Computed example of a mutant assay.
Amino acid sequence: MGGVVLLLPDGEAESDRPPSPLSFTRLLPLGRTLARAGRPEGLVVHSVHYGSRGWNGTDARLAVDTTEAADEVVRRYGDVPVCLAGHGFGGRAALAAADHPAVQAVLAMAPWLPADEPGAEQEPVKQLVGRQVLIVHGTNDHRTDPDLSYRLAERAKKVNRNICRFEVHTDGNALRQHHAEVLALARDFVLGSLFPHPYSRPVADALAAPPPLGLRMPLAAGFGKSLRP
């Protein structure tokens, strides 16, 4: 056993209903890509099944369920590095639960984040210290605000240099228009974060660059075609 990826599907702001099957289906291509690429390293991929689909305010149920899933990984596999990979509210859960001792990397795709309102408490970032973090966001996302993920990344970069953010130009919330490139980016980041694999040049440059360059890195068309399979 070399490592574990926990896939965190999207959810809703307020709900006690069971998770949507569609939210799990949307992460299947990512899971298959990572499982196939990481098989030689002993990488295992699991989906997290929330108790319900709602974040539910200060209860932060999706983050709590993610932490409990990481606890289960430790019980089942022992001391292995874990990557939390989520979309939408799953991306928010991945960022929020990053302080679990087993978590080494966080992949947040189109993360849903609360608006920065005057007087409101900001989304925390200190839990990201010591983790490798990649945020991916489409510039035409009308469901989750890409400006909010940029501002969170900007604050996080002040306490953790190992964070980068890629922008997928003209893509929306589902990141379908450049799906192959997004999967290649995720594969590159996860393998480079959990195992002794070098990052591709764009990811290495994004991690090393100061804001705003490393937090507004464009995902180039055709990314991944020359990378390892």
Results as ranks from 00 to 15, higher is better:
V5Q: 02
L7W: 03
L7M: 15
P9E: 07
P9D: 09
D10H: 11
G11L: 09
G11F: 07
E12M: 12
A13N: 10
S15V: 08
D16L: 10
S20N: 13
S23R: 11
S23G: 06
F24D: 03
L28V: 15
L30Q: 01
L30D: 01
T33Y: 02
L34R: 01
P40G: 12
G42N: 01
V44T: 05
H46M: 09
S47P: 12
V48E: 04
H49L: 04
H49T: 05
H49V: 14
Y50H: 01
R53Q: 10
R53M: 10
G54A: 05
W55C: 05
W55H: 13
N56H: 06
N56K: 13
G57M: 06
D59T: 13
A60H: 06
R61I: 08
R61T: 11
L62H: 11
V64E: 12
D65M: 04
T66R: 04
R76A: 15
G78L: 04
P81W: 09
A85P: 00
A85Q: 01
G86S: 04
H87M: 15
F89L: 14
G90E: 07
G91V: 15
R92F: 04
A94R: 02
A96W: 06
D99S: 14
D99K: 05
D99W: 07
P101N: 05
P101T: 03
V103S: 00
A105I: 00
V106S: 05
L107H: 02
A108V: 12
A110T: 09
A110E: 13
W112G: 12
W112Q: 13
L113M: 11
P114H: 13
A115F: 09
P118N: 01
G119V: 02
A120P: 02
P124V: 07
V125M: 08
V125H: 08
K126D: 11
Q132T: 14
V133M: 05
V133F: 06
N140D: 13
D141P: 02
R143T: 11
D147N: 14
D147A: 14
D147T: 09
L148C: 08
L152V: 14
A153V: 08
E154W: 15
R155I: 12
A156E: 08
K158I: 03
V159H: 04
R161K: 08
I163G: 02
C164N: 09
E167D: 11
V168C: 05
D171G: 10
A174R: 13
A174N: 10
A174S: 15
A174K: 11
A174Y: 05
L175F: 12
Q177I: 12
H178A: 09
H178S: 10
E181P: 10
L183R: 03
L183A: 08
A184D: 03
A184Q: 04
L185S: 07
A186W: 00
R187D: 04
R187H: 07
V190T: 00
V190I: 00
L191Y: 00
L194F: 11
P196A: 04
P196F: 03
H197V: 14
P198F: 13
Y199A: 15
Y199T: 08
R201N: 15
P202Y: 10
P202E: 13
A204S: 14
D205I: 07
A208E: 14
P210Q: 06
P211W: 06
P211F: 06
P212A: 01
L213Y: 10
L213S: 07
M217K: 09
P218V: 10
A220E: 11
G222M: 14
G224C: 08
G224P: 02
K225G: 08
K225D: 07
R228P: 03
